[in-house]
Each structure stands twice: as C-alpha cells, then as structure tokens.
C-alpha cells in the first residue's frame, strides 16, 4: 500500500532512502524515519538547509552554539565522513548506528580509537592522551596538579601500551578495552532503541513495513 503523505515531501540535500540506511545499520526502517525527524530538527536550528553545521551540533549538545570542546569537535569530524564541514542525513544515521545497543562491539571499539587518535596517525600517542585529559579537566571543575596528571597518563599508558613503543595501536587498544569494558560505555546510547517513541510522527505515516 502506498502512502499519500510522503508524496511531494521536500527532502534535504543529503537525504538517503531509509530502506538503504536500515540495510547498512542496526536501525529498522521506522527508526531511520524517526531519526529523520530528529535530523530535521537539528539541521534547521540555526541555518535551515537540511545539513547539520558544527554550531548546530554544539547547540544541541551544550545548549550553546559557541561552546568549543575538543571531544565534540572530534565527534563532529568523525560524523562528517565527506569532510565537507557539515553532517548529512546518511552520515548522521550511519555514524549513530555505531552507538546503537545492537551495533557490533568491534565497531564501537574502532570508533573510540579513531576518536582518541587526535592526529589521525593510526595510533594514540602519550601527548594526545595528556592533551585529552587536560581538555577534560578544562571543561570540568576537577583540578589536578601537573604531577597527578602525569601520573594518571603514565600509568594508563603503561597499562595500554603493551609493546612499550610509546604509542597505543589498534590492537593494543582492543586488548585494553577488553580488560576495561567501561571505556566504551559512552559508545552505546540506550535511547536509540526508543527513538521511534521519541519521534513518532513520521513513523505513523511510514510507507515501508519493517
């Protein structure tokens, strides 16, 4: 049965068919359609062009479009697969798919690695780890002395850098996460399982059966 509602609906420039995205991600077609509702909201919050700009991303994350945050920047850059400065709908869904509770754990581990490999060198270096700790402290009320920061970074590095070559590669990262599974807890958003409840309007009009 066709749907009279979706005919003539204006789609955003990077729009991709929910059936295609559902086939490539852990989302059902209904969930992709619900994500489109969320995407439309986020991508029109400042500039109504159907693309998520960094300011819109920051506004949604922090309620502040001008807030700068190293980790939010990294997330944005990883979502922006085409590297054109904006997040399109397909990029949004595929990237969020990694955060789905049913996504393969290997994908979550790999995504976290890319997130922390700040300079995209294929490994996490000690300087990068320290830079991230400092960025975290900068955004929180936590105050630690330089000595304590060094101790935390050194200790973590000695545990994760099994080969002792001064950098954490993907293999070492995988091993480290398997011993410390809480490290990728933030790579799962339980909310994604309820996305159709949060954004039901389009789902009710969906033309495709899951």
């Amino acid at each position: 049965m066709g749907c009279f509602c979706s005919k003539g609906v204006k789609r955003t420039p990077g729009y991709e068919e929910p059936t295609v995205l559902a086939a490539e991600t852990p989302f059902t077609v209904s969930e992709v359609e619900a994500l489109y509702e969320l995407f439309k909201k986020l991508s029109s919050s400042i500039i109504d062009d159907g693309l998520i700009h960094k300011e819109e991303f920051n506004l949604a994350l922090f309620r502040n479009r001008n807030k700068r945050n190293l980790f939010a920047d990294r997330i944005f850059d990883l979502f922006d697969v085409k590297r054109n400065g904006v997040i399109e709908f397909g990029e949004f869904v595929r990237s969020l798919g990694v955060f789905h509770p049913n996504a393969p754990i290997e994908d979550k581990i790999a995504f976290a690695f890319r997130l922390y490999d700040l300079r995209n060198t294929g490994s996490i270096e000690q300087e990068e780890l320290k830079e991230m700790v400092l960025a975290l402290l900068h955004e929180s009320d936590l105050v630690l002395s330089e000595d304590v920061i060094e101790t935390i970074v050194d200790k973590t590095f000695s545990q994760a850098d099994a080969k002792g070559d001064g950098k954490i590669d993907q293999e070492e990262w995988k091993e480290f996460v398997s011993k410390n599974p809480s490290l990728i807890r933030n790579m799962t958003l339980p909310y994604l399982k309820d996305i159709t409840l949060a954004f039901p309007s389009f789902v009710l009009r969906s033309e495709v059966e899951d």
């Binding site: 949604a60 700790v133 935390i152 933030n186």
Partner: peptide
C-alpha cells in the same frame, strides 16, 4: 574514586562532548 587511581581514558569518557544523549533532548 580518587582521580589519581582513575584510568585516563575513563576520565576522558566522562566529557560532556562525548555525551550524545543530549542530542535527543527535546
């Protein structure tokens, strides 16, 4: 937990910038 005993990655993972659940708040 005293911060000095924390794993640096564990500390980092608490960043608000990594908490994407905020995207879904209405």
């Amino acid at each position: 937990v005293a911060p000095v005993t924390m794993n640096a990655f564990e500390l980092i993972s608490t960043s608000q910038g990594l908490n994407l659940s905020s995207l879904f708040e209405k």
